[in-house]
Amino acid sequence: MSIKYGLLALLERGQAYGYQLRASFEESTGATWPLNIGQVYTTLARLERDELVQALGENPQGQRPYEITMAGRAALATWFATPVSGTERPRDELAIKLALALSTPGVDIRAVVQTQRTASVRALQEYTRLKSRATGGDDISWLLIIDAMIFRVEAEVRWLDHCEASLLRHQRAQREASAATAAAPEEAPEPMPSTTGETTPR
């Protein structure tokens, strides 16, 4: 999700200024996506440029709130109605790292897999602890985000297990192929015809 649509969704609730938007964004995402105030104001400037939000006059405290425009509401509605495409998601750095590790001299691919699995299992334990501390009164949006993170890490651990098993099968097949090649008997040389009509070995 881009910050752009997150801010539009927050402004759909009502007018807000930068620091309010940052606090609301982090609260809505369970603090799993921290923002700095510079990101917020840079995004607001782009939204204002594209006429998706408009800045209002400063309030008595010197704060400048923003509100969503009709064009912003239309863009937000389109975003909610459009499924997230796999090509629009960030590239999978872990998959790219493993692919490169396979072809990089001196890299122990199994050590790379094991290091990542250890970190993923640790993250899974932490997310599970966070969820276990939740009570019935906790924000359902935060619980849904924690569940999504748990499911994602569980899938990553399963994929790493699959990677390790595939590597073991590949290495075993390579060893067997090398052993079969080494054990294969050499072909006997074909005889060469002699000038006397008899054959002699080459």
Rank of each mutant, 00 (worst) to 15 (best):
M70W: 07
Y66F: 12
Y66G: 00
L47H: 03
T82N: 10
V53W: 03
E51T: 05
G38C: 03
D92F: 10
R46Q: 10
V40S: 06
A81N: 11
L56D: 13
R89Y: 11
V53A: 01
L52Y: 02
R73Y: 03
L44H: 06
A31H: 15
E51N: 08
R49M: 05
A74K: 13
I68D: 01
P83G: 12
A81G: 04
Q54W: 10
P60F: 07
G57H: 13
F80G: 06
T82C: 12
W79A: 05
F80H: 14
Y41W: 11
D50Y: 05
R89I: 13
L52K: 07
Y41H: 13
A77Q: 12
D50Q: 08
Y66S: 02
N36G: 04
R89L: 15
W33S: 06
W79R: 07
V40F: 02
L52I: 04
R73T: 00
Y66E: 01
A75R: 07
Y66K: 02
Q61L: 14
L35D: 10
L47E: 05
L44D: 03
A77N: 04
W79M: 02
D92P: 03
R89W: 13
Q63Y: 07
T69L: 07
G62D: 09
P60C: 08
A75V: 08
R91G: 09
T69D: 06
A45C: 01
I68H: 07
T87N: 13
E51K: 14
E51H: 08
E93V: 15
A74Q: 12
E88A: 09
A31G: 05
M70N: 08
Q63N: 11
Q39M: 09
T43I: 06
V40R: 01
P65S: 05
Y41N: 11
A71H: 09
L35R: 15
V53S: 01
G38V: 10
R89T: 14
Y66Q: 02
P60E: 12
L44T: 00
R91H: 14
T82L: 11
V40Q: 00
G57E: 15
T87D: 12
D50N: 10
G86A: 09
P90V: 11
A71Q: 14
Q61T: 08
P34M: 02
R89K: 14
P34F: 00
R91T: 15
I37N: 06
L52S: 04
I37K: 11
S85E: 14
Q54V: 04
N59A: 05
T32D: 10
Y66T: 00
T32F: 10
T32Q: 15
M70V: 11
A31F: 14
V53Q: 06
T78G: 02
T78V: 07
Q63E: 09
Y66H: 05
E93M: 14
E51P: 00
G57D: 15
S85M: 10
G72N: 04
A31V: 02
T42S: 15
G72R: 08
G72E: 05
P83F: 09
R46C: 00
P65L: 10
R46L: 06
W33Q: 11
Q54R: 15
N36R: 13
E58N: 08
Y41C: 01
R46S: 03
P90D: 09
A55G: 06
Y41V: 07
W79T: 04
T82E: 14
V53M: 08
L47V: 01
L35F: 06
E58W: 04
A74S: 07
T87S: 15
G38P: 00
V84H: 09
E58K: 15
E93F: 15
Q63R: 13
Y66A: 01
T82Q: 13
E67C: 01
